[in-house]
């Protein structure tokens, strides 16, 4: 299994008690497949994504990425794991204002300690895949909201991740663009063979996903599988 969450429990301090954000959550995502996690605001979706991204260590349970249990890894090793194996598509595009679209992708090579200039071809290939080849030289403020979101997606794929984690990809887009972005994520999941989780409060556009899980108060229930 490329991404496996098993029996994850996560609590946050809440006054004198603790708030259970994730309650024994298990979710398996095979390579090349797309899982949607659907739930209302405050149900624990972002927490689930943060645990899968190794940004939060859960109180209990294990996160396995590309066959490796992440529990024993040091901070530095987790950072390296994120760099090499995990692609994150943020809810906000989170692009760096000083960089062009192509450079947003090349940064991924730089933070890996390699010369970003060597990654130009790979960046152009991915910009082409998200339909932005002709916008490569533009800075974020010169791009539309949808274009920024597509750069955000392309950046997540730059280092060939095993796992792709997508947070509310359609929340800032209109219906048509939202559908296009989900189509794009589905296509890239198959093309790049990633284990993808899309977290959303919006049930529309979920026709092509491989499995749908619903969250309520930190409990996740598998509701549909298309495979």
């Amino acid at each position: 299994m490329s991404l496996a969450l098993s029996d994850i429990t996560l609590t946050y301090p809440d006054g004198d008690t603790r708030l259970t954000a994730l309650d024994q959550v298990s979710l398996d995502v095979p390579q090349g497949s797309l899982a949607a996690v659907v739930g209302p605001s405050g149900s624990g979706k972002s927490s689930l994504l943060a645990v899968a991204a190794t940004l939060i260590t859960p109180d209990a349970g294990t996160v396995t990425i590309d066959g490796q249990n992440t529990a024993g890894l040091t901070r530095g090793e987790l950072t390296g794991l994120r760099r090499h194996k995990i692609g994150i598509v943020f809810q906000q595009p989170n692009l760096l204002p000083s960089l062009t679209a192509a450079e947003q992708l090349q940064v991924m090579t730089q933070i890996d300690g390699r010369d970003p200039r060597t990654a130009r071809d790979r960046a152009m290939e991915l910009l082409h895949a998200v339909g932005l080849a002709d916008q490569a030289g533009r800075r974020p403020h010169q791009l539309s909201g949808g274009q920024r979101q597509r750069v955000n997606i392309a950046r997540a794929l730059m280092n060939d991740p095993t796992v792709l984690l997508v947070d509310e990809p359609t929340s800032a887009l209109d219906h048509e663009r939202g559908g296009a972005v989900l189509d794009l994520i589905t296509r890239l999941t198959h093309q790049q063979a990633t284990a993808t989780i899309v977290v959303t409060h919006d049930r529309t556009h979920l026709t092509a996903v491989d499995q749908i899980a619903e969250v309520h108060d930190g409990r996740v229930h598998l509701t549909a599988t298309n495979r």
């Binding site: 590309d66 490796q68 390296g80 194996k85 000083s98 450079e103 090349q106 300690g113 390699r114 200039r117």
Partner: peptide, 27 residues
């Protein structure tokens, strides 16, 4: 699948990439 370990690379990024672009951008 084998253990995933990270090796420190020698001579990390020669180019100060983001910082350099910031210098140009926030001229």
């Amino acid at each position: 699948m084998g253990q995933y370990r990270f090796h420190r690379r020698k001579g990390q990024a020669k180019v100060v990439f983001v910082a350099w672009r910031d210098l140009q951008f926030a001229k």
